[in-house]
Design a protein around this nucleic acid. Structure first.
Length: 556
RNA sequence: UGCCGGGUCGUCUAAUGGUAGGACUACGCCCUUUGGAGGCGUCUGUAGAGGUUCGAAUCCUCUCCCGGCAGCCA
């Protein structure tokens, strides 16, 4: 619980607030944070930032971190979402104690507190309908008008509120409102609604309740009940803080400090749950975990690691200014992690057959290949080499541009872990398409022998034809063609039509035959890939491309 | 035209009256049996105008720009 636990970390303004609180003993040395999702959709990378922030604070200060579902609206919430959220929060590696918490477990307490406010003359039952309330709220420049029901007696309010709870009234016919100030420049203080009548089945409380607390009334109560010290939320709640404070002050209960920070926005994607839901419902993507989505489950399926996500959260930092973060920061985080930890392997995505004419028929050599040059402890493997191999179509050019380091007609290139070969002949079909290469190899140039005097500019990967396994590979690109689709009037028209490319006949070295679902590899010179966990058949392995390798040649 | 926030390299983020720094990106060089990784280097920034001060990104004033707020959503 000391400051030096964070002494070597870069501090954001929230850490500074907490340091100061510890110094002044504001909370008796306690630090308690929470992540309070509404179970109305899947978690996305922006939520991951919030989770990392809140959990990171609890961890760094030896405090406590709660996972609490803000399930106050039965019409939008589902158990499926609760389950996915728990899974994602776990996957990120947070420790939220021995149980998951729910706002719905506090409904009784909140009801009692509402009664208390009525008794203090601070809340009243209002018979205005939604339209009438909107009409009387005023505008940006004009104050609102007080409800004609604002000055009901405490007894009448108590009676009416109980009858609301008992289900005597239809949806929308009555609300419980806080009696604050209809002339406040802050709309949130113009007699905000605390309870609305919703006759709907709640995913946890069933039909026990037909009145449900609004966010404004519920949220501070939830934080208070759990003993939260720092209630961290995003900027759009800044205007709600005075109300958060007002409720807690009226109640005289534990009063956490609300602190707002700027939510994460990533370019070339959308981050609103509403939009993500629409992408799913209208089938622009597979599902919430479609690898093109910015959801946690999608990143997981695509091959991202929790470490990379956490590191990304660290890299983007925490501040109050609005930001549109470049996706390259995320890609850096995942490459950085995968580079250090993944097994290298050779895979030819778009095969072109090459026959090494002077290599003996039927001969097979088992060549040694390093598994990970970044980590010698990962050892090496044997890769079969033979007369017929596949190389990448893009590794051969008849009319190469200046600076092309790969195979050309009459030129030489090294086959990774094998020999230097020379292209002697280009075979084409009737359509003038290259269908095969005839090459010759130099036996003196075998990899690792140190006998090669030759120097070639390029090294390309390959797979032995007779040993190759056929796999499907899915290449993903950004889901949108514009940097900030979320602000476009017709954002759906900005969807990238080429965000998914399926390659059904990629060739892999046999080492991968028994790759397990979710396993990650680097396909040398191509990128990082992982075995698909969801839509894959048994007869063929399917790989998802997590991210490409940096490619300083492709950029020209 | 109301209230609340916010403006620092292309992007994200530090500097809390005392040398505007880091990461990413881009570019260049070195190295390399992955055009990967790694190493080195370069470019680019305090929204504007005044003021206070020996000294201002930081404090004051005015201006400009951006975001949020008029759900019985969160």
């Amino acid at each position: 619980m000391s400051e030096n636990t964070t002494a070597n970390k870069p501090k954001n303004f929230i850490y500074e607030i907490i340091d100061e609180d510890l110094k002044t003993n504001k909370w008796g040395g306690k630090v308690c944070t929470r992540f309070p999702p509404e179970p109305n959709g899947y978690l996305h990378i922006g939520h991951a930032k919030s989770i990392c922030l809140n959990y990171g604070i609890a961890r760094d200060y030896n405090g406590k971190f709660n996972l609490r579902f803000d399930d106050t609206n039965p019409e939008k919430e589902e158990t499926e979402y609760v389950e996915s959220i728990i899974e994602d929060v776990n996957w990120l590696g947070t420790d939220f104690g021995d149980k998951v918490l729910f706002a719905s477990d506090y409904f009784e307490q909140m009801y009692l507190w509402a009664v208390e406010l009525i008794k203090k003359g601070k809340a009243y039952v209002c018979d205005l309908n939604a339209d009438e309330i909107r009409a009387s709220r005023g505008t940006l420049t004009e104050p609102g008008k007080e409800s004609p029901y604002r000055n009901r007696s405490i007894e009448e309010n108590l009676n009416l509120f109980e009858r609301m709870k008992n289900g005597e009234f239809a949806n929308g016919t009555k609300t419980l409102r806080a009696k604050i100030d209809m002339a406040s420049p802050n709309f949130n203080l113009r007699d905000p609604i605390m309870y609305r009548i919703i006759h709907a089945e709640h995913h946890r409380t069933g039909n026990k309740w037909c009145i449900y607390p609004t966010y404004d009334w519920a949220h501070g109560n939830e934080d208070s009940i759990e003993g939260i010290t720092h209630s961290i939320c995003t900027l759009e709640f800044e205007n709600h803080r005075p109300l958060y404070d007002w409720f807690l002050d009226q109640l005289g209960v534990h009063h956490p400090q609300q602190i707002e920070f700027a939510r994460l926005n990533l370019n070339y994607t959308v981050m609103s749950k509403r939009k993500l839901l629409q992408l799913v419902q209208e089938k622009y993507v597979d599902d919430w975990d479609d690898p093109r989505m910015p959801t946690i489950s999608a990143y997981k399926r695509r091959g991202y690691t929790p470490e990379a996500i956490r590191n990304f959260a660290e890299i983007v930092g925490v501040a109050k200014r609005d930001a549109l973060t470049d996706i390259s920061l995320l890609e850096f985080a995942i490459r950085d992690d995968l580079n250090k930890h993944t097994q290298r392997v050779m895979a030819v995505l778009n095969p072109l057959k090459a026959i090494i004419t002077n290599y003996p028929d039927g001969k097979i050599e088992e060549l040694e290949a390093v598994n990970n040059p970044e980590d010698p402890s990962m050892g090496s493997r044997r890769v079969p080499f033979s007369k017929e191999i596949y190389i990448e179509q893009s590794d051969f050019m008849e009319n190469p541009p200046k600076g092309f380091h790969r195979l050309i007609h009459g030129g030489e290139v090294r086959l990774r872990y094998a020999y230097i070969i020379k292209c002697d002949e280009v075979i084409k079909n009737d359509n003038d398409e290259i269908v095969e290469l005839r090459c010759s190899y130099d036996p003196e140039t075998k990899s690792g022998t140190g006998t090669s005097k030759k120097k070639v500019k390029g090294t390309i990967h390959w797979v032995s034809v007779n040993h190759a396994i056929d796999v499907e590979v899915r290449l993903y690109d950004r889901l949108f063609t514009v940097e900030n689709p979320g602000v476009e009037e017709n954002w759906l028209s900005c969807i990238n039509p080429n965000s998914l490319e399926v390659i059904s006949n990629a060739k892999l070295e046999p080492f991968l035959r028994n790759a397990k679902k979710g396993e990650r590899f680097q396909f040398e010179r191509n990128g990082y890939f992982c075995v698909e966990t969801k839509h894959a058949t048994n007869d063929k392995l399917v790989f998802n491309r997590t991210v490409t390798l940096r490619d300083s040649w492709a950029k020209k």
